[in-house]
Design a binder for these strands. Sequence first.
RNA 1: GGGCCUAUAGCUCAGUUGGUUAGAGCGCGCGCCUGAUAAGCGCGAGGUCGGUAGUUCGAGUCUACCUAGGCCCA
Length: 1051
Amino acid sequence: MSSHDAKKPYPEVPPQARFPEIEKRVLEFWKAEKIFAESVAGRPESNEYVFYDGPPFANGLPHYGHLLTGYVKDIVPRYQTLRGRRVERRFGWDCHGLPAEMEAEKKLEISGRAKIMDYGIDRFNDTCRTSVQKYTQEWENYVTRQARWVDFENDYKTMDVSYMESVMWAFKELHRKGLIYEGYRVMPYSWAAETPLSNFETRLDDSYREKQDPAITVRFELEATADDPHPLGVWVWTTTPWTLPSNLALAVGPEIEYAIYRADGQRFVIGAAAAEKYQKEIGDAERVGTLQGQALVGRSYRPLFPFFADNPKSFVVLGADFVNTEEGTGIVHLAPGFGEDDMSVCNAAEIPVVCPVDDGGKFTEPVSTYVGQHVFDANKPIIRELKERSVLIRHETYLHNYPHCWRTGTPLIYKAMSSWFVRVTDFRERMVELNQQIRWVPEHIRDGLFGNWLEGARDWSISRNRFWGAPIPVWRSDNPEYPRIDVYGSIEELEADFGVRLDNLHRPYIDELVRPNPDDPSGKSQMRRVSDVLDCWFESGSMPFAQVHYPFENREWFENHFPADFITEYLAQTRGWFYTLMVLSTALFDRPPFLNCVCHGVVLDETGQKLSKRLQNYPSPEEMFETYGADALRWFLVASPILRGNDLQIDREGHGIREVVRLVLNPIWNAYSFFCLYANSENIRATFRTDSPHVLDRYILSKVGDLVQAVEDRMEVYDLPGVCTEITAFVDALNNWYIRRSRDRFWRHDEAEETQNAYDTLYTALVTLLKVSSPFLPLIGEEIYRGLTDERSVHLCEWPDAKELPRDQDLVTTMDRVRDVCSTGLAVRREHDVRVRQPLRKLTVAGANLDGLKPFLELILDEVNVKEVELSLDIERYAAFKLQVNARELGKKLGGKMQDVIRASKSGEWRQLDDGTVELAGITLEPGEYELLVDAKEGIACRALGTNDAIVILDLELDQGLEQEGRARDLIRVIQQARKEADLHVSDRIHLVLALPAEWKQAAEAYRETIAEQTLALQLELSGDVAGNNRFVHQAKLGNDSVEVGLSKAT
RNA sequence: GGGCCUAUAGCUCAGUUGGUUAGAGCGCGCGCCUGAUAAGCGCGAGGUCGGUAGUUCGAGUCUACCUAGGCCCA
């Protein structure tokens, strides 16, 4: 861009900016000049900061959650870039898995595994590939518009062959380490998606939802024994009636007490503690005995359904520790095909598992009565059948939290399946150890949410019985008589055995690799790939190495870019990406995968509900971009508690975002526009300088230094909201103190050097503010920075050095004191109902440590509207002293006497000695161990400073001159109001006629010139017809008096 | 039932290693404009920090229990 020559003016900056328009211009500039690429390339490769971008599912559009994550993912790298580090930002796309398959099923209008096979896996997968590419452009648009710098050109996709080969390598590596096994396990199963889910997929988002289920109590009949020759029923409670046809055993708690009841010659058993709940059903049955659960263990019973009557070792009562009487009857039915506990107990009893439910959740043979019915639909007829057979004791409904499929929203079932597992339990202690090396924000995640999760980690089911994913690279003999398993870790290994070099590792192509089983002398059996694909979370967890095709390429790169310095996602990824990164990183490399992790919360609507397209309970991001801009949205999100792990509520109209414009963007813009307006009108160019001797300049430069340091400190611990707090505090000091109090310095023509100092300092403060805040306001910051300087981009800058700024802590303290004096003076005015327009004769500050105020008396005078400011040591005239002991110091020394000291200091029972010590409660306090505070006396117009070591006294007595001046100012204000109401331009000249009571008229006469000058009146008449000559008439009350203003525009 | 988080002004949130009188923004009340900014500025009112018990000379801060809400799990 063009550079300013010495006389070139600053931009003409409108006082009101249209931020969205500015933003679009800046975005175009970045694009045209490739600023992002330059910001990366300009930093040395030897000083890298490693950032991993978590791959989003590439389907569906970004929402506020993504935008927030994106802002954080942008701010930290921008900051590190300013600090001189090279931060590469490759964008990643998570392409595989159920989301894409569901989309494809919807598009092709087919559903279920069988239909997909019929349609053809190759065509189906092609559709998946297309569907994940559908949204990439829109993602890119959003990400670009939010001013997030990302390398899209050099992105990675989990479906790339190189990525998939690295995943294959990881699988083989785990297998080599003995960390992979195939098992038959009961797993959460989505019958709608026709696939098992991993234990953490059931824990994402709102997968636990309320579900109403039947809860029934049924009666089983125990077989008679020699010891107990009479029929004995047991009452069993279940919320899954559909599992009863597959019942193979019952379980009791061996230590639990059970009660026996008798009625009509029949006996039944129920947990003693559960009897109360069943009073109605027990009726007037008589309790005839008690027994321990142990006594029931080993007894046989009659199967409720006939389907598996011949199953070996089945239909016996087993003992199990997990049984309790809190819910149900204390007797549990076991269907090992459909419950994890059920299976482990039945396994121990060597009962073979049965699982008569197909992939779609429908009954199969031999459950002939219900074949083809979905298990949930079968609940009702099963209950009906049980009722007809009179074994149903009770039928009720039960509302509980039940896991649902995170993709299809349908309730899951638990079902026994064969699956491949990562033996996470083998190395979870190591994960817990490595986790200690990670800085989590908020801190408690480390040993709380994430740490606890690691400690309870279970083996990870990584196979999915699906189509669109990285295939499990395991080939198995199709004849169990000649068992053999081959695991492959690269395309080359496949080529070596199968003689084919694949350039697409997806199904069905990889399934076509078949070869004779080398271990089969008959040569008939074949090695075939197991049909499953990998859980897509395995792939996202592989991102650190798979994105660069490690270990096939980039070995050195990977060594230098692992672990990451920083990642961020929302809180729930402790069960998702953060976790799978940790698992694979520990198992493969024995290192933590990242060193700093920010967990942010969830964006909710104003009532705390989740954002929902259907409810339209949130403002659309595009609309926010258009109305307030991306920087306002960025600040709104990032300054909020959401980055401390809490939730953030966003209102439908986006008021919070508008507030950011008001409170953050406008003030910064106004400072900029002030600077440009007057620098141009004075024909001044400013330079970066930190050596102005003026006290206000040194004050603000010191504040700038504090700001730089504070932002560094906050960023060091990834406290982004804290940075926002620092910046707003600084902007307030800059605008509402420094500029306001320095105003006349900017147009003093008599002292060129002094004026230049003021401009240079303001320039230096602004430029530094912009550098420091540029990660948080990248677009607006860029516009202003480029307007002020000759440089191309604020994002190519070096971070300012706090040490180069004059850091005068005393001055900052003194200035705070000056502000305190002014505030207190204004507060005294208010207390006594004296308007600021009324000049007062004198303001006195009485107290200690006042010398520092001397250079600021003019300033105080102006700010509080007094004629004179006096500093006085004579405090006792206006205030009493009270003693404040330095508790922090003395507490350690005095211990138990401390309270006596405090009591004495409060009641005033102390005295100061000439040597500077204070005596009270039998103790002597050295100087430094106490402070003397002032307590303003009653009946005087005074008030103590916030620091309590001085008081401000106002002389409220008015003489005629002061009163008249006050009245004159009141009149000016009324006239200005009239001008405004008459809709005059600020530069319009007027003719004025005033109709005033006597006292006001005197004041007006005395200050006639001032009034005329201030209100641009060419003529001022103090008597006459106010309304004459078509004058605009304005009436006002001043105290109890009425005044009338008549004005007309002078031509 | 267990784990984690949260509870501070009407609302949204800060609050450093325990220290006497707990802060900010919004909202509210009052006041201030014509040499940047009314989409602005100043001043003020308003909380005893969810409850109880404890540790301590001293607790918003530490401990235990309880209550309410959120998240996660059983």
